[in-house]
Design a protein around this nucleic acid. Structure first.
Lengths: 209, 209
DNA sequence: TAGATTGTTAATCGATTAACAATC
DNA sequence: TAGATTGTTAATCGATTAACAATC
């Protein structure tokens, strides 16, 4: 356990940098400066260096960073150097959209189970995953070594599902329901609202101009 | 145009408050204090009052806020008191997931057009919207009075599609492609990365513990 | 009035930026 | 060496929190 706290904004930027480095690597670029990364990702070069400095010294003064080296460091820092098994609970509009989105797999997140309570939904296929009944939650989490749970159920069911996931050993919860969830301190919780991004846009359109 | 800048975090919290107030209203609650909202949404009560103070005085000292009144204020502030017509460009895995997700409609975002270049995708139905060819971009934006464009195309096509949208009068761009886009100052741009939420979790799992 | 809660100011905390010595 | 760029410190900026007068 590290003593200093890493700002969440830094973590999110590291993710952006890593994508950009991946792109550069595919283009055959071998070396970048913090200024290059800055221009490519829309932040300041001081920010890039500061963000990296939390984790070590990855560059060479006067020269810059080796693209593939820095990329590998970032992937390791972000915990993307392994595969994370993910369960999605709730296969309604949102849950099935998430299950169908393949961008997660590229970053090491493997959706291995999708559950629902609706008999009409159970048994349907989302890509190559079949939606299974909610009762299988504990069984699937255990046998598939699932560490991340995605909550895509209605608000009324969110806490109960979360409790079951946590009790069975899930270490992190990504909550898409509009409910403030209680989890033990050692479980990582993150709340997401898909349409908040559009709302920030509409706010800016309606208010600022 | 307001002179002071509203922190983006404030806007995102206003969105959270509005959802919570909506829930309270449905439960028949008539009055809330900043402390209630704080507990219900997981922030501090000072934060709630500070966020609201940017926009006016909505409460009564010693009493609190009227739930429906405050809700209506927030909806207005967020620009959700009207309908926004949205175009999604790109109907791949991500674009179609976004088109199928109905949560946007609840907040006033109406997806009216989905475009793609792939002949295999054009003509397929996403809910009740049919995917149409990219060539119709200008025509659809104009005739359907579209103000918000969602970029769900590969990085290589992102800037070109953005330029066409902006040129045709779209006022805001929600960019899901991993590309830093150039837009004129008056166009609102927001970059989103769906899997960054999972990456923040994996970072916390891998690094902090 | 006494109790409660807002709106707002001042203090604190944290994150970003500027600047530069270190060094390739 | 001269030029370039890192790593890091100190200065700045901005956001959150604590505290309290105003007031219902």
């Amino acid at each position: 356990m590290k003593v200093f706290k890493i700002p969440e904004a830094t973590v999110m930027r590291l993710s952006v940098y890593s994508r950009y480095l991946n792109q550069l690597a595919r283009e055959g670029v071998e070396t970048v400066s913090s200024g290059d990364i800055a221009k490519g990702t829309g932040v300041s070069s001081a920010q890039v260096r500061k963000d990296l400095a939390y984790f070590g010294e990855f560059g060479t003064r006067g020269v810059g960073y080796k693209v593939d080296e820095l990329y590998n460091h970032l992937i390791k820092i972000l915990g993307l150097d392994r595969e994370w098994n993910v369960i999605i609970v709730g296969a309604g509009k949102l849950g099935s959209a998430l299950a169908l989105y393949q961008g997660f797999a590229e970053r090491g997140f493997k959706i291995v189970t999708v559950l629902d309570v609706d008999p009409d939904i159970i048994g349907t296929k989302l890509g190559n995953i079949e939606v299974e009944p909610l009762e299988l939650l504990e069984e699937r989490v255990r046998e598939q070594n699932i560490t991340i749970g995605v909550i895509a159920v209605p608000a009324s069911a969110a806490q109960e599902v979360t409790d079951r996931l946590v009790k069975t050993g899930v270490k992190a919860i990504l909550n898409f329901s509009p409910r403030v969830l209680k989890v033990p301190r050692e479980v990582v919780l993150r709340n997401v609202d898909l349409s908040v991004n559009l709302e920030v846009l509409s706010f800016n359109l309606a208010f600022n101009r």
